[in-house]
């Protein structure tokens, strides 16, 4: 596969220029990944403003720590990890206490998985954003990013069992929310 070329420069050349402090190269790199990374930020945030803060913080880190990037791996993967770590730290900084939501609040009748496939990306993101912070983090990390429960427990500094439990609760909550959505629609 031929390398992606932006303004006549490959990603590798752009990264080299970024290391020299070339603002144009930094902007090109930013434009290359901004849309995809903003989507990640939105998924990890409760609302858009929070996502924008994470997005900007993370990209500043990307450019200030660019020298630490080892070119043996994927740059996109590296940026994504920074975004996720920034989102996790941002969540940990929140002074609000964790929301305790028991499963007894949910009804037994919930939507099946096939209902989710009918939803658009924006609707899915809205569903994720509506989850409590802890559930949202675990669900994003496990379901979308593909982290294991062990990795999640280390990232979020929680027990593995907590990660499993929160994932289960997140799924049920998503099903319940979709069920409510469809009931309204009907």
């Amino acid at each position: 596969m031929s390398p992606l070329i932006i303004n006549g420069r490959t990603e590798k050349e752009l990264l080299k220029a970024c290391l020299q402090g070339d603002r144009l190269a930094q902007r090109d790199i930013f434009n290359m990944y901004a849309g995809k990374m903003m989507a990640v930020c939105v998924r990890y945030s409760r609302h858009r403003l929070e996502a924008e803060d994470i997005f900007q913080d993370a990209f500043v880190k990307v450019f200030t720590h660019l020298a630490e990037f080892e070119s043996t791996g994927s740059f996109e993967g590296w940026v994504r990890r920074i975004i996720i770590n920034t989102a996790i730290k941002n969540n940990q900084k929140k002074s609000v206490s964790h929301e305790e939501i028991g499963l007894e609040h949910y009804k037994e009748d919930s939507a099946g998985p096939e209902v989710f496939s009918l939803l658009s990306e924006e609707e899915l993101i809205k569903l994720i954003s509506s989850l409590p912070d802890g559930y949202r983090m675990v669900f994003n990390l496990y379901a979308i990013e593909g982290y294991s429960h062990k990795e999640i427990s280390e990232l979020l500094n929680i027990e593995e069992s907590t990660s499993r439990s929160q994932l289960l609760k997140a799924r049920r909550m998503l099903q319940e929310k979709v069920h409510e959505l469809y009931k309204v629609a009907i």
Binding site: A34, G35, K36, M38, A39, C41, V42, R43, R48, A51, E52, F55, Q56, F116, L119, E121, L124, I125, I128, F139, A143, I144, G146
Partner: peptide, 13 residues
Amino acid sequence: FRNKLEHHHADIP
């Protein structure tokens, strides 16, 4: 969720 959101793009602020 993964299939639909893994490569999703959002508007840049």
